[in-house]
Design a protein around this nucleic acid. Structure first.
Length: 418
RNA sequence: GGAGAGGUGGCAGAGUGGUCGAAUGCGACGGUCUCGAAAACCGUUAUCCGCCUUAGGCGGAUCGAGAGUUCGAAUCUCUCCCUCUCCGCCA
């Protein structure tokens, strides 16, 4: 969430940012409630101050045996106490309303994020490799992999439901190999490997912003009020919930694998062929907690760490800086990595790298202590896929296919097939 | 799943209705002493919010979370969460 004080002091800046994000959130009501709250606070705190003083007097009177005077003071305090209770209740109501609003206000984009509705302002900032064009008629990954016995959507729908892929033989080993390759590469570059739970509680989902707005997109275990993680971002970022880190320990970088579960409610029939949009996929996620002044630079590093994986896999890709209208709720700046799939003949998003500024840290209370003055400060958080398996597998299959229906894997991956 | 114990400041640990934001010890930081260090001694040692303000000051809140009783709650009552021990079950 944003800083209420910041909104109070920079209402125009916030208005512009939210409008650019295609979410013209009405902050006037919020500011009014905030003013009301502070007015009431002033009033009730004065009463509480009075009460605290009276309490001391009552205690002193009782101690010195002046029971009558004490009783009179107690009687006098009854009305004040009642008044405090009433105002507190009002303040409490306002607090709740303000809180609810605060949770619904999206982050505003950085200044250098191109403005525009929807994906209209998205910008390709660089490309790597040349999109492959096979000399033969390229198959799409589904036909290819089903023929090889590596993938079955049908078996998945029999045992679970639609869009739950089953991988077999080389297809299954490919999953395992990719996870290892990615974790190894990130481990060599300073990311601490972590294997988080795939189920998280409501608090964690709220902390990283999936709740309350997107509950319908999540799988939920009703009896325990637990959720299947949509990304390892949730458990890994929440690892730091309520923590106070030392400035010297930043940046902290974690990389972890988790299965990712997405209900994709409302998107039935939209690019649902094969592996392009599934309810369960595997992903290695990178998460960083950094100093406020390092956020921008760390985002660039994060993107290049995700790119490194694609380069190892010899997959041609492009880097897209998302325009203001296409960014997620919590992001301040975001890059997507898209890989060309010559069979399906389109680009697939296999990674999304975001910088949240202190938006997440504020929700979830991740702070760090400054070394020079000992002050506490909200940290900046970032995360990025490094990278998502299902679509990467899709791209590996379609890029690596041969005229006779086999698949040639990149050198770096072969080491993991031994 | 059953039975029991417990959650207090960075840690250990006292506190069962009234000058308790909280004794004491340890740790950390600053200082005295020392060529330097140790020891000893002295001092400091949370966070959030609001108000006035240049520094700074004043006030409020916080003892797992929430609700309640009371003039007044770390202390009493209720609900929830978590941790530990024993038993059962299990990979």
């Amino acid at each position: 969430m944003l800083d209420l004080k910041f909104i109070r002091e920079n209402p125009d800046l916030v208005r512009e940012g939210l409008a650019a994000k295609n979410n013209p959130f009405e902050i006037d009501r919020l500011l009014e409630q905030d003013a009301d709250r502070r007015r009431l606070l002033l009033e009730v705190e004065e009463l509480k101050s009075k009460r605290n003083k009276a309490n001391l007097e009552i205690a002193a009177l009782k101690k010195s045996g002046q029971a009558d005077d004490a009783q009179a003071a107690i009687e006098a305090m009854k009305t004040i106490s009642q008044k405090i209770k009433d105002i507190d209740e009002e303040v409490g109501k306002l607090d709740e309303e303000i809180d609810n609003l605060m949770y619904e206000i999206p982050n505003f984009p950085e200044k250098d994020v191109p403005r525009g509705p929807g994906n209209s302002a998205n910008k390709v900032v660089r490309t790597w490799g040349t999109p492959k064009k096979h000399l033969f008629k390229a198959k799409d990954h589904l036909i290819l992999a089903e023929a090889l016995g590596w993938l079955s959507m049908e078996k998945g729908s029999k045992i679970t439901g639609s869009a739950f892929p089953v991988y077999e033989a080389e297809g299954a080993r490919l999953q395992r190999a990719l996870i290892s390759l990615m974790l190894d590469r990130h481990g060599r570059h300073g990311y601490r490997e972590v294997w988080p739970p795939a189920l998280v509680n409501r608090q964690s989902m709220t902390g990283t912003g999936q709740l309350p707005k997107f509950e319908a997109d999540m799988y939920r275990l009703k009896d325990d009020d637990l959720f299947l993680v949509p990304t390892a971002e949730v458990p890994i970022t929440n690892l730091f919930r309520n923590d106070v880190l030392k400035e010297e320990d930043l940046p902290v970088c974690y990389a972890g694998y988790s299965p990712c579960f997405r209900r994709e409610a409302g998107s039935y029939g939209k690019d649902t062929k094969g592996l392009s949009r599934v309810h369960q996929f595997e992903k290695v996620e990178m998460v960083k907690v950094v100093r406020t002044e390092d956020g921008a630079a760390e985002l660039e590093k994060l993107v290049s760490d995700a790119e490194a994986v694609l380069q190892m896999l010899e997959l041609p890709y492009r880097v897209i800086l998302l325009g203001s209208g296409d960014m997620s709720f919590s992001a301040a700046k975001c890059y997507d990595l898209e890989v060309w799939a010559p069979g399906t003949e389109r680009w697939f998003e296999v990674s999304s790298c975001s910088w949240f500024r202190d938006f997440q840290a504020r929700r979830i209370n991740i702070r760090y202590r400054r070394k020079d003055n000992g002050k506490l400060e909200y940290a900046h958080t970032l995360n990025g896929s490094g990278v998502a398996l299902a679509r990467t597998v899709l791209c590996l299959l379609e890029n690596g296919q041969t005229a006779d229906g086999r698949v040639e894997f990149p050198q770096a991956l072969k080491a993991y097939f031994k």
